[in-house]
Design a protein around this nucleic acid. Sequence first.
RNA 1: AGACACCGGCUACG
DNA 2: CGTAGCCGGTGTCT
Lengths: 143, 143
Amino acid sequence: MRILYTDGSAAPNPGPGGYAVIENGKPIALGGEPMTTNIRMEGIALGKALRLLNGEEAKIYTDSDFWRQVLMQWAPNWQINGWKKKKGDIKNLDIVKPLYELYCQSNAEIIWLKGHAGHEYNELADSWANKAREGQRIENING
Amino acid sequence: MRILYTDGSAAPNPGPGGYAVIENGKPIALGGEPMTTNIRMEGIALGKALRLLNGEEAKIYTDSDFWRQVLMQWAPNWQINGWKKKKGDIKNLDIVKPLYELYCQSNAEIIWLKGHAGHEYNELADSWANKAREGQRIENING
RNA sequence: AGACACCGGCUACG
DNA sequence: CGTAGCCGGTGTCT
């Protein structure tokens, strides 16, 4: 049973963003984008984690209750209703759809934990996501 | 020319509710009900304001576009058609009818302003409506 | 089927 | 204080 921690950030929000996937206290995936949102980076981190797992049994810890609810509650309904919700449009569908598909094929459990509440590995993921974002900012500045 | 601000709220909705009428930065009417809706409380606030004006020339600011449209567009038609609309019943008729009558006899102009957009006196009305609702909740708990 | 407004709740990011 | 996202409700209109 593998245990992964994911986190994403954007500063300012929206703005340059980064994400990290942590396993055994070390980053196994890092990345960033020059212009994104906190929500998108958290989702991309989860997608990266699911891809790395490739079907293996696992627990993934995230501080994004939003994405946990997308995968476990809302997406099933959205799919049935043709990817529509009652009010307005579903945002970030380009991430939602493939992520939900990955989740359905996975043996992973998505577990929410409160951010900045002293969870060691979550803080670590946060820290690495920030580093990845800073790297992104530098790339951005350099061109 | 008197300038009044009204607001109403319910938390949860439906649930205990409160309303406030503000003039010169101070509440001139407050009230609450143990079980109501946000729409009803906004309407009751307007009714209270019109009664307090007693025909004096005034502007009344509300963030309920719904009630502004009731008074300025829909109610005239509803009255002509015997207080019926094409589909379904008119809700909250117990508030709509006397409110429309008060409005017709008044010299007040109803003006909509966007809620939670930094309008100082509207925020004040919101704040007092919440206090009135909390008082209502306490009364509710006590008895 | 669309549109509008308001009320309430939750999480994260900054 | 702001941003990004979601859920539920009351109500009307075309």
